[in-house]
Amino acid sequence: MAKHPRATEEVLAKLARHKNHEVRKMVAESPRVTPRLLTRLARDKAKAVRAAIARNPQTPEEAFLRLARDRSPEVWEEALRRLPKPFLEELYQKELLVRLAGKGNLEKLKRIEELLG
């Protein structure tokens, strides 16, 4: 139902609150999902839902920025691929500072470097 081409915003919003994460993932993959709903689902507890949002070309930049800082490599990797270069550069600077402070994710920092070329 979530992937149905005629699913309404109201139906998708209701399904986005479903207890089964597979249903919420289908909402994130729907061609009719709204940017507002994608932004809300970017905070979902299930990484499969967040990764689906990161793959959705309709996802707003605000949600991509959140997903790029996700704790799950499956999620942040998808988001990084879709961020415009200025956002990648800004994120790189932040990740570098966190890494220099003895924290942060070296794998993510290296991936951003690769994407920046």
Rank of each mutant, 00 (worst) to 15 (best):
E74A: 13
I53V: 14
A16M: 09
K103C: 02
E74V: 10
R43D: 11
V98S: 02
A46M: 08
A7D: 10
L15R: 00
R36K: 14
S30V: 09
R24W: 08
R6N: 13
R82H: 11
G104F: 05
K3W: 13
S72Y: 10
R40N: 05
E95N: 09
P86F: 11
K94F: 03
D44H: 02
T39N: 15
M26I: 00
D44E: 07
A101K: 15
G104E: 07
P84H: 11
Q93T: 07
T8G: 13
R43V: 02
P35S: 07
E29K: 12
L100K: 14
K94A: 15
P5T: 06
R55S: 12
I53S: 03
R24V: 09
L91E: 04
P5Y: 03
P84N: 11
H4C: 00
K110Y: 04
L97G: 15
E107C: 00
R55E: 12
F87H: 11
K19Y: 12
N105F: 01
R50Q: 09
P57F: 08
A63N: 02
R81F: 10
N20F: 06
N105V: 05
H4D: 14
A48I: 06
S30H: 07
P31Q: 04
P31W: 00
L12T: 10
P60V: 00
S72L: 03
